[in-house]
């Protein structure tokens, strides 16, 4: 959980509330609403989840239970550059764990963490489906394939200004 104070804007709130209004009568709309909320805010802090619970008329426990069940929902903000290391089988057997280690070492944080300057966050995922390029790392929308640990410095250098 994050200790970073919530910095949502009135525009973000209006956007989320408008989305909730369009969805609230659709059965099973909690997931799409959470996904949209995460798109708007980047993460799902308590303030946002309360808005959702309120708007949809469900309990906060229900919203929180769903948001912690699925690995794509995050309760803390992510870095400006989201480093996602694929640990699917194809990547794993080709040494993705060593690539992850090298990234963790370079950035000084472990998977799930964010650098103190908020620039990088590291996450792991299960198969982005680019098995032909294993091992694969995705940074925001850029895909890096066929990586070895000593390519990590070069890969990250694109983002360290």
């Amino acid at each position: 959980m994050t200790q970073i104070p919530f910095k949502g804007t009135p525009e973000q709130e209006a956007e989320l509330k408008a989305f909730i209004e369009t969805k609230k009568h659709e059965p099973g709309c909690l997931m799409p609403v959470l996904q949209e909320a995460q798109r708007i805010y980047g993460y799902l802090p308590v303030e946002v989840q309360q808005m959702i619970a309120d708007g949809l008329g469900v309990t906060l426990a229900e919203v929180y239970g769903v948001s912690t069940f699925y690995s794509q929902f995050t309760l803390s903000p992510k870095g400006k550059y989201k480093v996602n290391v694929c640990l699917g089988t194809a990547c794993y057997v080709k040494g993705a764990d060593k690539v992850l280690e090298a990234i963790e070492k370079k950035l000084g944080i472990s998977a799930g963490g964010i650098t103190p300057d908020g620039k990088f966050s590291i996450d792991t995922c299960r198969c982005v489906g680019a098995c032909g390029l294993a091992p694969v790392v995705v940074i925001n929308d850029d895909v890096y394939g066929k990586l070895t640990p000593d390519m990590v410095d070069d890969m990250l250098s694109h983002y360290i200004d």
Binding site: P27, M31, V66, F69
Partner: peptide
């Protein structure tokens, strides 16, 4: 409907529970 990262939702009843908006 978009999943949100849960392997178990490949199981048919879990998938339906998920579409219904639950864990």
């Amino acid at each position: 409907r978009l999943g949100a990262g849960a392997f178990v939702c490949g199981e048919e009843t879990a998938l339906m529970t998920s579409i219904e908006g639950h864990r």
